[in-house]
Design a protein around this nucleic acid. Sequence first.
DNA 1: GGCACGACATACCGACGGTACGTACCGGTG
DNA 2: CACCGGTACGTACCGTCGGTATGTCGTGCC
Lengths: 225, 225
Amino acid sequence: MPTARPRREDYSESTRQALVDSAVALFTKQGYAATSLDAIARRARVTKGALYHHFSGKQAVFEAAFGAVERAVLAKLGQVVAGPGTPWDRAVSGLQAYVQVCLEPSYQRIAIHEGPVVMGWERWREAEEHFSFGLVKGAVEALVEAGEIDDLPVEVTARILFGALQTGAAIIAGADDPRKAGTDVSRTIIRVLEGMRVAGHDGGAPTGNAQPAQPAASLLRKLRG
Amino acid sequence: MPTARPRREDYSESTRQALVDSAVALFTKQGYAATSLDAIARRARVTKGALYHHFSGKQAVFEAAFGAVERAVLAKLGQVVAGPGTPWDRAVSGLQAYVQVCLEPSYQRIAIHEGPVVMGWERWREAEEHFSFGLVKGAVEALVEAGEIDDLPVEVTARILFGALQTGAAIIAGADDPRKAGTDVSRTIIRVLEGMRVAGHDGGAPTGNAQPAQPAASLLRKLRG
DNA sequence: GGCACGACATACCGACGGTACGTACCGGTG
DNA sequence: CACCGGTACGTACCGTCGGTATGTCGTGCC
């Protein structure tokens, strides 16, 4: 019996959203293993029964939280990389925006650190394809297409760059002086990018902007829920 | 031989080792959360009571497994990076050796993927400082000292490179064709390194090799146990 | 105005991490 | 050789948590 006002009067969707919000908050603060379903439900002012009505289990709750965090990030970054300028400019500004996003504790913990462990690496990778990694990959593809960087294998280059970005974000998040760490990381990664630039190339002609991959797949629907 | 070592300690040590081996095997196969202490003990042909005699809890068991895996890797890589040649050559060959090491499922799962989550990022980072990351950092320091690469912040550069290496390893481990993925990853990362090279530099004078940081700290003793 | 259905709550089970305690065995001592 | 202390386990048990089965209340519908 919920002591406060019964949630029943609200809509089901609101309850589900409250559960997701609760999960994001608790997973971010305590991590997946240390967060109980009872705690998640209690914070949303419902019981475990309600939780199991909306989700098939703890992992499903995590994936919903993961999806919520990723969609928020995607909304923030989508504008930046789709903005004006050359592919190179957009890549650099997107990079800086991403580093900024990575300071969000929820993204750090849920999407980057615990995501692969809880969801399994393969599934996590598949999901990431449609979210932040999709943006990075699109940016790299645009750079190659524009002849800005050497024609390395796109997939591998994008993944490695993605890994470097995540590590950079982790550095910033754990640093004593996040501001200084932020500039250090940005400088270093941009230096890496410049190192991969084709010799004598310093700003090519703009090309059509590359959209991230098609959404498709039932996984997407689950994460979108 | 100073004092006669009682047989009992041999047996005890052997039991502990069996528990660690069992833990490494099961954590690698099933992951931390899905592995029960009973299962670990059973595989070592003892009971949970014995396990709790040797370790303070599940996390301590994981850290022992982590230490075992990391020490094995360190032994393998230590020779490579301490070998002959210029800092640049040693860095490149060490890089390739590390990518090779990363194909070990135990290292992938225990050291890289679950380590930060189970031990906590800060503690994991502190431990890594004395193991594989220590080697990478040492190599980067040597490169900077030798004037091979630009004087970016060493710590940040090393960490980002480390992240890139791990990601590369993960790519190889999950690829359909590991051989092709291996060459792609090596090529890409070496390209990244070359991109960071100081312009017009293609092989400087050898310098004194930089040792990884001092071992010290009680954490080390625990992991060494 | 019953009635089916969705949206929860309640009660309970099994598994697992952790603890308390019992016990067999070894080495030393008188 | 009897005795004793401590180590290296085994056994029994508890609390918590993920998951399930079932009950209940409101609401739209005929």
